[in-house]
């Protein structure tokens, strides 16, 4: 359901930013976590409020997961957590403790593109490419739930991932193409 354009309360007088702050930077408030990213086990010592996307990008250094809005709307930061798509800007790193994360870098195996990656390239499901990793991860999540989706199911399934370039037509085509390949 869409929201009409409205007004949010101002955060602060000169506040255009909603970047997460470190309210207190005390050493004792750190937490140790352990999680698997693309099959490799990582340990990290982080603040409890550290976001999963910052862990992936700034600590692990995997930059294929993008940040587009910081407010869990655009979906550019979508990754799989224990097989399910999540927006990693809306997941605390501690929530992923003990979990298995797959990012766009973990999809291709031995240089062989995943059928969904191949489909996005083949069907021109990408233009600027910034939403693409998140879109591909969300589409992978969709096909796990619904292996052979209708056009309607694809459009609703990817509603949480915004693309400004394509008008979605070729993205829908790509997901159908991948579904056909993966079922076959």
């Amino acid at each position: 359901m869409r929201l009409a354009g409205g007004v949010l309360p101002k955060v602060c007088m000169c506040g255009t930013h909603i970047l997460s702050l470190h309210p207190q930077r005390k050493e004792e408030q750190r937490v140790k976590i352990s999680l698997s990213i693309n099959g490799t086990q990582h340990e990290a010592d982080i603040e409890p409020r550290f976001l999963l996307v910052h862990l992936i990008r700034d600590v692990i250094g995997l930059t294929g997961t993008h940040i587009g809005c910081e407010t869990s709307i655009c979906g550019a930061c979508t990754v799989l957590l224990d097989g399910k798509p999540v927006k990693s800007c809306a997941v605390l790193a501690v929530q992923a403790n003990g979990g298995q994360v797959t990012t766009i870098e973990g999809l291709a195996k031995d240089g062989q593109l995943h059928p969904m990656q191949e489909a996005f390239w083949e069907c021109h499901g990408l233009q600027c490419g910034y939403c693409t990793p998140g879109m591909i991860m969300a589409a992978c999540g969709l096909l796990k739930e619904t292996p052979n989706p209708s056009e309607e199911e694809i459009r609703h399934g990817l509603e949480g991932n915004i693309c400004r370039c394509t008008g979605y037509q070729h993205i829908v085509d790509a997901v159908k193409y991948a579904a056909d390949k993966m079922v076959a």
Partner: peptide
Amino acid sequence: NVVWREGRMVNNQMTNYIMPTSADVPPI
């Protein structure tokens, strides 16, 4: 819809500036 107040865009987030999703756009 850009909502202005005293010359400033006040719905300056994707949460309240609404753009089409895949479910809003028909087959073109």
